[in-house]
Design a protein around this nucleic acid. Structure first.
Length: 180
DNA sequence: CTATTGATGGTC
DNA sequence: ACCATCAATAGG
């Protein structure tokens, strides 16, 4: 799965870069947590386009979130990047845990929506994969409304990384479910 | 540590 | 009305 494979890769924008340490997969129009589940609209049309482009959306009146479109044309699926570890271009310490924080820190906004991730100012660079035993997975964050999809373990993160967000999947209790 | 709330605005 | 959020605050 692409969300798992993106862990360890490098997101770059505006001269700043970070190693991807937390992702969530949104797998299609049938996934009730996916923005595409409510049909093709002006906002979500990029999701139906070709893979390898940025889907950047605005939430809660103040935050941008960055996704990479992963589904082939006509198949809306994407991976939300939720956490990074700082690599280059930052002036002092930065927090990159959380999808909106990382966008703010890298200067990603709606201006990058639709950008080609292989040939524009926003890029994802290849890098060594994260070892299986360092990867954990669990339910996605903030999607309680998505019925059975709320508990589907489509969130992936690098165990122990400071770039992993602290948001819990609020429905269930207990610790982060984990392990590969 | 958990829980709650205000900020702030596009989308449908 | 509803959010794929964050920061600040209050309470145990």
């Amino acid at each position: 799965m692409v969300a798992r494979a993106l862990l360890g890769k490098v997101l770059v924008h505006g001269g700043r870069s970070g190693r991807i340490v937390e992702t969530e997969a949104y797998v299609g129009a049938h996934d009730l947590a996916c923005h595409a589940a409510r049909g093709r609209t002006a906002r979500t049309s990029i999701l139906w386009g070709p893979p390898g482009r940025a889907y950047v959306y605005f939430v809660y009146g103040m935050h941008w979130c960055f996704n990479a479109v992963t589904g082939r044309e006509g198949h809306p699926a994407a991976v939300l990047v939720r956490g990074l570890e700082a690599l280059e271009g930052f002036d002092g310490p930065v927090r990159l845990d959380g999808p909106a924080r990382l966008c703010r820190a890298l200067g990603i906004t709606g201006a990058q929506n639709g950008a080609d991730l292989a040939a524009s100012a926003v890029r994802i660079l290849d890098a060594p994969a994260v070892r299986g035993r360092d990867v954990a997975r669990g339910p996605r964050i903030g999607v309680d409304y998505a019925e059975e999809w709320a508990e589907t373990p489509l969130r992936f993160w690098v165990r122990g990384s400071p770039g992993v967000s602290r948001g819990r999947p609020s429905r269930r209790r207990g610790q982060a479910d984990s392990i590969r």
